[in-house]
Computed example of a mutant assay.
Amino acid sequence: MGYRPRDRELAIELALELLATGRVRGIPPNHRPAELERLLGRPFDEGLLHFSGNLLRDWGLLEAYYEREHEGSPWHGTLLMGQLHRMPKPLKWKDIARELRRLGYEVTPEPQPTLEDDYFRVCESGAGAVVNGKDTGWPRGHIAKISSSDWLPVWSPSAPYDFNAVHRRIYVVTAEPERSWTAWLAAQQPESHSQWFRLAHRAVHTVAREHPEREPQAAALHDWLLSQAEAVNVLSDVEQALLTARCADGRFPFDALPARPGSPSPDAIIGRCLAVLPLTREAAQSLPISWRELTPADVQRSKLTRALLTAAHQVREKATTQELIDELAAWDDVLPTIC
Rank of each mutant, 00 (worst) to 15 (best):
residue 4 R to G: 00
residue 8 R to Q: 12
residue 13 E to Q: 14
residue 15 A to Q: 06
residue 15 A to T: 08
residue 17 E to H: 10
residue 17 E to L: 03
residue 21 T to R: 08
residue 27 I to L: 13
residue 29 P to K: 11
residue 37 E to P: 03
residue 45 D to H: 10
residue 53 G to C: 02
residue 55 L to K: 14
residue 66 Y to G: 03
residue 81 M to D: 10
residue 82 G to K: 00
residue 86 R to W: 00
residue 87 M to Q: 08
residue 91 L to N: 01
residue 91 L to V: 05
residue 93 W to I: 01
residue 93 W to Q: 04
residue 94 K to A: 07
residue 100 L to Y: 08
residue 103 L to A: 09
residue 104 G to I: 04
residue 110 E to T: 06
residue 110 E to P: 04
residue 115 L to G: 06
residue 117 D to K: 13
residue 121 R to T: 06
residue 123 C to P: 04
residue 128 G to L: 04
residue 135 D to H: 15
residue 135 D to W: 15
residue 149 S to F: 12
residue 150 D to G: 09
residue 150 D to T: 08
residue 155 W to R: 15
residue 163 F to I: 07
residue 167 H to R: 15
residue 171 Y to Q: 15
residue 177 P to I: 01
residue 183 A to D: 14
residue 186 A to I: 01
residue 186 A to S: 12
residue 189 Q to H: 11
residue 190 P to F: 10
residue 192 S to E: 12
residue 192 S to T: 03
residue 194 S to I: 05
residue 199 L to A: 11
residue 201 H to Q: 14
residue 206 T to L: 09
residue 210 E to H: 12
residue 212 P to R: 05
residue 213 E to D: 11
residue 216 P to V: 02
residue 218 A to W: 13
residue 218 A to N: 13
residue 218 A to M: 11
residue 220 A to D: 10
residue 224 W to Y: 06
residue 234 V to P: 08
residue 236 S to L: 04
residue 246 R to E: 04
residue 249 D to K: 14
residue 254 F to G: 04
residue 255 D to C: 15
residue 260 R to F: 10
residue 260 R to E: 09
residue 266 P to L: 06
residue 267 D to H: 12
residue 273 C to K: 07
residue 275 A to Y: 08
residue 277 L to I: 01
residue 285 Q to G: 10
residue 285 Q to C: 08
residue 285 Q to A: 12
residue 290 S to T: 00
residue 294 L to H: 01
residue 303 K to W: 07
residue 304 L to D: 13
residue 305 T to R: 10
residue 315 V to L: 05
residue 316 R to E: 05
residue 317 E to D: 12
residue 320 T to K: 13
residue 323 E to I: 06
residue 324 L to T: 04
residue 328 L to E: 06
residue 329 A to P: 01
residue 329 A to N: 14
residue 333 D to P: 04
residue 336 P to F: 06
